[in-house]
Computed example of a mutant assay.
Amino acid sequence: MRLKKYTDYALRVLIYTASKPEGELASIKEISKVFDISENHLSKIVHQLNKLDMLTTIRGRSGGIRLAKPPEEINVGDVVRKMEDDFILLECFDRGSDHCVITPACKLKHVLNDALQAFLQILDEYTLQDLLSNKSRLRQLMDITD
């Protein structure tokens, strides 16, 4: 299973934002600098996280972004499901594709589907808060000061 960079970056944005001191806003510019990710790409991610009610965006000169809810209410499995546009592991997972001649009898699709469900089930056991258990070290690495 491989997650898209889009999902990886979304999780980084959430971790960064959650690592900021209480009440302090994050900016796309500073997140871009810390992770060396294009501001334009991050803007799209922040926009989607805002639409999903995971981030709140504040416009204006003193604006920025912050979590829309406490980190313990943001489930990692939920984030991954909402950021990934598909979980097609093999051609036979795609309903519109029937190129493989053994699809009607093949068990591989079922085995991989079970593995995918187990992967997502493990992610469902974690929240953003769990990813912050080493918050002081994260803040140090991301150069976030009080």
Rank of each mutant, 00 (worst) to 15 (best):
M1Q: 03
K4Y: 06
K4M: 04
K5G: 09
T7Y: 07
D8N: 02
D8P: 00
D8V: 00
A10L: 11
A10N: 09
A10H: 14
A10R: 14
L14N: 04
Y16M: 04
A18S: 05
A18T: 01
S19P: 05
P21F: 09
P21N: 06
P21K: 08
E22L: 14
L25E: 15
L25W: 12
S27T: 15
E30C: 11
I31L: 14
I31H: 07
K33M: 14
K33Q: 15
V34R: 11
D36E: 13
D36M: 12
S38D: 13
H41K: 11
Q48K: 15
N50T: 15
L52V: 14
L52H: 15
T57R: 15
R59Q: 11
R59M: 12
R61Q: 14
R61V: 14
S62W: 12
G64C: 12
L67K: 05
L67Y: 03
L67R: 04
A68W: 10
K69M: 13
K69G: 07
P70L: 15
P71I: 13
E73I: 00
I74H: 05
N75W: 09
V76L: 14
D78N: 13
D78E: 13
V79G: 01
V79A: 04
R81S: 09
K82G: 03
K82P: 01
M83L: 13
E84I: 00
E84W: 02
D86L: 03
D86G: 11
D86S: 14
F87T: 08
L89E: 02
L89K: 08
L90N: 05
C92Q: 10
D94A: 11
R95A: 08
R95P: 09
G96C: 01
G96P: 02
S97G: 03
V101M: 15
C106Y: 09
V111F: 02
V111M: 02
N113K: 04
N113T: 06
A115H: 07
Q117E: 12
L120F: 05
L120C: 06
I122W: 05
L123V: 02
D124L: 08
D124F: 09
T127Q: 07
L128N: 02
Q129I: 00
D130F: 07
L131N: 01
L131R: 01
L132V: 01
S133A: 12
N134G: 10
N134T: 02
K135D: 10
R137S: 02
R137A: 11
L138W: 10
R139C: 09
L141T: 01
L141W: 02
M142R: 04
D143Q: 11
I144S: 04
I144R: 07
T145V: 10
